[in-house]
Structures are given as C-alpha cells and as structure tokens.
C-alpha cells in the first residue's frame, strides 16, 4: 500500500486514523525550532553578558535547558507540539494514538543524541526513510509517532439542486463518489464540473454540459435524503 495511514482502535472500538509525517515537514519543523532556540540564546545572551560571570553561568544553564528540555516541555504541556511542529500542523503521539507523556517524551528526545550521529541527524534520517511510519530511532525506542493533525473544519454545505431519483440502484462506491462531487462542487468552476460529469454519461443519462453536472448534483441531493 502506498497509503501511510495508520489505523488505531480505541477502547470504544472505533478506528482513529493517524497520518505519519515524513522527513521533509519534520526537518522544516526542526529548523523553525532551531531558529527559535538560537534567537532565545542570542537575545538573552546579550542581556546576561552584562551580568558578568554570574550571567555566564545562567547562560550555560539556559543553553542546557534548551538543548535537552525545550522539546519535552512543549510536547507534554503544549498538546504534543513544539512551536515548529505547530507551525506545520504536526503533533507527537504515542503509537496507540494517545497524547504523549513525560516518560515517552524524555526518551524520544534523549535519543536525539543517537539520531544525530554520525553528523547532522544521519542515523535519524536513514531510519526515518526506511521505516514505513517515518520513525527515527528516538521514535522507535519511545514508541511514538509524529502525525499530521488538521484544524477542525466546519461541515461543508452540499450544493442544492432538485433531488432526482436514480433509475437503477447505485453501488456504494458510486454513491460515495456522487456525494463527494456534490460537496466539492462549490469550489469547482462550472467548466470543471461539466468535464467531470461528462466522464460518467451513464449517470448523467447522456445529458452533457451544464445539464449533466446539474443531474449529478440532483442525484447526490437525493442520496443524502433531500426530498422535493
């Protein structure tokens, strides 16, 4: 399968689908986080420098904290995402789909050291590219996944049309395709709607052009239960 979906069954016996994120978005997220950390160290560093040796000690502590605990704190307290990950709609979850806890987050971020070897996240990239769920060593050891989490969207309104009853029973795939077409119709140009309708002359009853598209919308309206 080319699909990278991972289905997880929750205790309610419902399947939740997770979509693991690949190398590129995760690299970008890391770069954003790196830039943030660098910015913090540089800006706070100039302030701390004026405090002399005491400031130097504080700077080392800050650097230590950012190096090891920046991802952990954000992942556990910030709904599974560092600012970089949030910018790319990514979150870290346990392999069973539940939000990540302290232990798992610590493990996956400590293992960054191993992923970083031999240089520039070499091992991490290789394991990520070889793994079908794009896990780096830290993810394998901590049993975590980095997945896409899209923002909640409002339900789209199905394009209105006079409902038409199909003349013959439609199979499930066809029904699904018709409803999906009607949902997307508002975002398609009339020309594209007609082009799509022309691909299924048996459904459009040989009506072409605007009538064909209108007929498909009518069928979809009937399928979701609208009646005249």
């Amino acid at each position: 399968m080319l699909d990278t979906l991972r289905s997880v069954t929750t205790p309610e016996l419902i399947e939740v689908q997770l979509r693991p994120a690949g190398l590129l978005p995760r690299t970008l997220a890391w770069l954003i986080d790196f830039a943030i950390r660098l910015g913090v160290v540089m800006s706070v560093g100039t302030v701390l420098e004026s405090l002399g040796d005491f400031g130097g000690g504080l700077l080392l502590l800050l650097y230590f904290g950012l190096e090891w605990f920046y991802p952990v704190l954000f992942e556990v307290l910030g709904k599974g995402a560092t600012p970089g990950k949030r910018a790319l709609n990514l979150v870290v979850v346990n392999a069973n789909g539940t939000p990540i806890g302290w232990g798992a987050s610590m493990t996956r971020n400590l293992l960054r050291t191993a992923d970083f070897l031999p240089f520039a996240y070499g091992f991490g990239m290789v394991t990520m590219l070889c793994h079908r769920e794009f896990r780096r060593l830290g993810d394998i050891v901590a049993d975590t996944l980095v997945v896409y989490r899209e923002k909640q969207q409002a339900l789209p309104d199905l394009a209105e049309a006079t409902p038409i009853m199909p003349t013959a029973p439609l199979d499930r795939a066809t029904q699904r395709a018709l409803v999906a077409f009607a949902e997307r119709a508002r975002g398609l140009t009339p020309a594209r709607q007609e082009e799509l309708a022309d691909l299924v002359p048996h459904l459009a009853h040989d009506a072409t052009g605007p009538q064909g598209a209108e007929r498909l919308l009518g069928l979809a309206n009937h399928l979701i239960g609208r009646r005249t």
């Binding site: 969207q153 699904r176 409803v179």
Partner: peptide
C-alpha cells in the same frame, strides 16, 4: 457511507 466530509468532521471530533 455518509459523505466523506461528515465522516472526517466526526473523526476529528472523536480524535479531540
């Protein structure tokens, strides 16, 4: 077999 967007909408609510 309700529409994909309804399924997706409910899926997101369930996930949250």
């Amino acid at each position: 077999d309700y529409s994909l967007s309804l399924v997706e909408h409910l899926h997101q609510l369930v996930q949250q």
